[in-house]
């Protein structure tokens, strides 16, 4: 059953950056967009299970630190080879200074 989990505080992530969040044996990536919005995706690249938290956020793209594959972290869409499989995304809400994600 899906549940909302507090992932971090809003000021834990710089704008145009991300952090790793682990919960329940799964790993997630939480993003802070240039517009100030927050997003969440699976934490591992769909290409070769590399943690995206060490990657580079450019606008609305997250680039994997190992092979430079890119996803749109708002939709999870794979945007640049070698990634071919989309990234799973998760709903996010901000409550005051806390960021919550809805996990399965």
């Amino acid at each position: 059953m899906p549940q909302w989990i507090r992932a971090c505080a809003t000021d834990d992530i710089d704008e145009e950056d991300l952090i790793r969040f682990d919960h329940g044996g799964a790993t997630y990536a939480i993003y802070h967009s240039p517009e100030g919005d927050f997003f969440a995706t699976a934490g591992l690249c769909t290409h070769e299970n590399i943690h995206l938290c060490d990657g580079l956020v450019m606008g609305h793209l997250i680039e994997c630190p190992k092979h430079n594959g890119q996803f749109d972290y708002r939709t999870g869409e794979a945007k640049r080879a070698p990634v071919c499989v989309n990234l799973r995304t998760y709903p996010v809400r901000v409550d005051g200074t806390d960021v919550y994600i809805e996990v399965p």
Binding site: H47, E48, K66, H67, A81, P82
Partner: peptide, 10 residues
């Protein structure tokens, strides 16, 4: 070779 080089880095 785009894929070959990805493997080289993996």
């Amino acid at each position: 070779w785009r894929w070959s080089h990805a493997r080289h880095h993996t």
